[in-house]
Amino acid sequence: MKLLPLAGLAGAAVLSTIALTDALWQGFEGTPPPWGVQGGHDWMLAGVNLGHAVPYLLLTAVLMQVGPQLDSGGFTRWVRRLLIVTFLLFAVMMLWGAITGANSESLGVFEAGTTILFFALLLLPIILGFAMLRRRDVRLPAILLAGSLVPVVLMFVLSELTSFAHPAYAEALALFGVALLPFALEPRRAESAVGAVSGASEAVSR
Rank of each mutant, 00 (worst) to 15 (best):
L59W: 05
P55H: 04
W78C: 10
V92Q: 06
M64H: 14
Q65Y: 04
L82Y: 00
L82F: 03
V92M: 00
A53H: 02
T76C: 04
A91G: 07
L70A: 09
T60P: 11
A61M: 12
F75K: 09
L89A: 02
W78G: 05
H52M: 15
A61D: 12
G51T: 12
V54D: 02
M93I: 03
A53G: 10
Q69E: 14
G51S: 04
L88M: 08
L59R: 04
F90R: 07
Y56R: 15
G73V: 08
L70P: 05
A91M: 10
T60Q: 03
M94I: 01
G51I: 14
P55Y: 07
F90D: 06
G51A: 14
R77L: 06
L89T: 00
F87W: 03
A91E: 10
L70W: 01
L83G: 04
V92E: 02
V54H: 08
F75Q: 04
V54T: 06
P68I: 13
R80V: 07
W78Q: 11
L82I: 04
Q65A: 15
L57D: 10
M64G: 15
V85H: 01
N49C: 11
M94D: 11
F87G: 00
V66M: 06
A53M: 06
L63V: 05
Q65E: 15
N49W: 04
V54F: 06
L70R: 00
N49S: 14
L58I: 02
D71W: 11
H52K: 14
L83F: 06
F90E: 13
L70E: 00
Y56C: 06
L89M: 05
A61E: 04
I84L: 06
L83R: 01
Q69N: 11
V48L: 10
N49D: 15
L63W: 01
G51P: 08
L88R: 03
Y56W: 15
Y56I: 12
P68L: 02
V66S: 13
A61Q: 10
M94G: 09
V62A: 13
V66A: 12
L58H: 09
S72A: 14
P68F: 02
R81E: 02
D71S: 09
I84H: 01
L70D: 03
L57T: 14
V48R: 14
R77H: 06
A53E: 08
L88Y: 00
G67T: 11
L50T: 15
L57C: 03
R80H: 03
L88F: 05
G73M: 03
L88W: 00
L59I: 12
L50P: 13
V62C: 13
L70M: 07
